[in-house]
């Protein structure tokens, strides 16, 4: 059974006719051939598939493509290219915020969104006082990034990369 859906990916309108079962992740990877978004677990347990939809990071594996009519999707490819990297991508390279690279696009998308979330005042589990605006601390970054597993264990470097990007924008 198929259904039509149109959404914008990295600023480009895409019209697809898809098996209704197609996840947003598989629509990106298999139909649009945007393979930067990774499939690590396909069950919302790793974060490798993180993309930014309408300004919010989500697990693209746990949502159907057909549910995103009219949405604006930003994937890792939409943030930057090897020749013109997004500041977060450049910071990951500089701080060696990866090893195998497979979780990296999800980490980068999440990292970009996390700094926006903090700026927007969204609290986290470790925000000391719910009445205060959250700050860019290592503890906040670690908690907020915990939905992105890196089995290579680049966490410490990822926090360094994010801290640099957050600092340069402050």
């Amino acid at each position: 059974m198929t259904a039509r859906v149109s959404f914008e990916v990295n600023g480009q309108r895409r019209d697809l006719e898809l098996d209704t079962r197609t996840s947003l992740l598989d629509a990106l990877r298999e139909h649009l051939k945007l393979t930067g978004t990774k499939k690590g677990c396909d069950h919302g347990q790793c974060g490798a598939c993180t993309v930014i939809v309408d300004g919010r990071r989500i697990n693209s594996c746990l949502t159907l493509a057909v549910m995103h009519e009219g949405a604006k999707v930003t994937t890792i490819e939409g943030l930057g290219t090897p020749e013109a990297m997004h500041p977060m991508q450049a910071a990951f390279v500089k701080h060696d915020g990866y090893q195998c690279g497979y979780c990296t696009p999800g980490q980068v998308c999440s990292a970009v969104a996390v700094l926006e979330e903090i700026r927007a005042g969204v609290p986290s589990h470790v925000t000391p006082d719910l009445g205060d605006r959250p700050k860019v601390t290592a503890e906040e970054l670690r908690e907020r990034m915990s939905g992105n597993i890196c089995r290579c264990g680049a966490y410490s470097n990822i926090v360094d990369a994010m801290t640099e990007v957050a600092g340069s924008r402050a």
């Binding site: 919302g44 993180t50 990071r57 989500i58 609290p123 589990h125 719910l130």
Partner: peptide, 28 residues
Amino acid sequence: AADARVRNDYAVLSRALLAGASGQLRNK
């Protein structure tokens, strides 16, 4: 979790929500 009224008056609910899942999952 981020709603000011919930944070002020029902903080246990904010805290519970923020303790669950991940940022990506809570967004959905």
